[in-house]
Simulated scan of single mutants.
Amino acid sequence: MFTPIKAAAALMTVALTATTAFAANPDVGGAPMFAEKNIIENAVNSADHTTLVAAVKAAGLVDALMGEGPFTVFAPVNNAFAALPAGTVETLLKPENKDQLTKILTAHVIAGDLTAAKLKSAAAKSADGFAHLQTLSGDALSAQVRGNNIYMFDENGNAGKITIADVDQSNGVIHVVDTVLLPK
């Protein structure tokens, strides 16, 4: 028999489960990230990713990253773009450099939903300790675990640390990185 007490307990269980699921996704750039929203819908709310969002718009990649996916995005923070040589971002945002900007941005995107656990597992199984990945641009990224941290290496050997992992999206996952990863 389903009593009012059992009904209340069931509602509390549903509420706690929903709260737990919501709490599992970390805030990014001072904004909550919602697993039911796509990569773009969440990224535009992050104060730490305004340069990335501007670059994605300039490259014409908004619709692609709002697509079904799944995608894994290694999302550089504003400080990562600011660390590039002076004038680099401004130059890349010019319409005549759209192809180069697109290549750089798609070198941060992997087809599939690669969680931190999957990256760690792939690196652990690899003979050289790196998980080797191919990006949407056709370039290579490699993931290496150092202690509790995951570092992403571009084709030039530059390393970026994943500072916030496993930000679930409706069409994939975002890992926040502290470096712009550049293709050759």
Rank of each mutant, 00 (worst) to 15 (best):
N156P: 02
A43C: 07
A64L: 13
V89M: 04
T102K: 15
I110N: 06
I104Q: 04
K6S: 08
I110Y: 11
L65S: 03
N158I: 09
A117K: 10
A165K: 11
K94W: 03
L16G: 10
E41G: 13
E96A: 12
D63N: 06
A8V: 14
R146A: 11
V77Y: 08
T115I: 02
P85Y: 00
A116I: 05
T13K: 08
F130T: 05
L181A: 01
T106R: 01
T115P: 09
A80P: 05
N158Y: 13
T106S: 06
D48M: 12
A111Q: 12
K98S: 14
L119R: 04
V180Q: 05
T88A: 04
G147P: 00
I40K: 06
N171H: 02
T20N: 15
I39H: 03
A143N: 04
H175C: 01
T115E: 09
S46M: 10
I104E: 01
K120Y: 00
V145T: 15
N97E: 02
E90R: 03
H132G: 11
G138T: 13
E41I: 08
A9P: 11
L52D: 05
L136M: 14
I110H: 10
E68V: 01
M66T: 14
D113P: 05
S121P: 07
G30N: 12
L133N: 11
A23Y: 11
F22A: 09
D27K: 07
K98W: 09
A9M: 15
N97Y: 07
I174H: 00
V173D: 00
F81D: 13
T51M: 00
V73G: 01
N149G: 13
T51C: 04
E68G: 09
A10C: 04
L182S: 02
L93C: 06
Q100Y: 07
N148L: 07
L141W: 08
L16F: 14
V177Q: 11
L101D: 03
F153L: 14
K120I: 14
A165Q: 10
T3R: 09
P4S: 00
